[in-house]
Design a protein around this nucleic acid. Sequence first.
DNA 1: CTCAATGGTCAAGCTGCTTGACTATATGGT
DNA 2: ACCATATAGTCAAGCAGCTTGACCATTGAG
Lengths: 138, 138
Amino acid sequence: MNVLATASRVIEQIQDGLVRRGFHDVRPAHGFAFVRISHGDATVLDVAEHLGVTKQAASQLVEQLVQRGYVTRVADPSDARRRLLALTARGRACTRAAEASAAEAVTAWQGELGVDGTRRLARLLARVSPDGPLRPIW
Amino acid sequence: MNVLATASRVIEQIQDGLVRRGFHDVRPAHGFAFVRISHGDATVLDVAEHLGVTKQAASQLVEQLVQRGYVTRVADPSDARRRLLALTARGRACTRAAEASAAEAVTAWQGELGVDGTRRLARLLARVSPDGPLRPIW
DNA sequence: CTCAATGGTCAAGCTGCTTGACTATATGGT
DNA sequence: ACCATATAGTCAAGCAGCTTGACCATTGAG
């Protein structure tokens, strides 16, 4: 059951790291959206599915990211209905900051488990959860 | 980073298990409250601190649990301000159902990792997160 | 006997999500 | 070429969970 406590702390640490690096206006859910958007060829509907929420909720979330300068909407030349999402320079900077924060958290684990233990932990986790969509429940 | 996916799935599986066992009206946050209440000598403020929310939020959450028959309030003989919380029979049944569901999830891991790998995973996680309060962020 | 501290509730407001309705574009069948 | 249906997206209203602020009752220290 410590998975929950661990996950809770990881989220918290990433969030703190982002604030320290000057990104005050992003929530964890935004980060999950970034993951899908940076993966390329993403629409609002793709983000919705990735987050496990309705398209309306995803639409609002993306709108915030656009207003705050993290994401831009570009027209899809082959389909006028679709509006493709892409990270701005700031969005990419934020992504890097989040990765750096996550790396910090993992480094903290190494203090507890050693480099070796951390690697084993990562591999065990990868085996139980071959990464699927992130569902921000709870 | 798979900690997040794993935790997400665990929460989901417990939730599903509870529904299958007939508990439709409990959310994960309720479960976290149960943990503190079953630990004994819990007030609304204790629950609030354990969940990392305000006392008002905890008060509302407890009120729901009382209305739904999971928790009772009993007067503290030594302090008329305090109202001690305790699980009802139904509350204890729900706790057992949640534990059974969690056990199911772990059993599923054993299919992936084997009994041995699961034990190692559990011990690694316990070392990185020596259980503290649960913060339902994200 | 005060008076600050503590446990708890009530009330109002915000935010993130949902459902429902709607517009615009695309596409397949006739 | 035309219509019906499906798809991408937004607008609007409502709900649930949380917050802040105010308040009441009880306690305990001076």
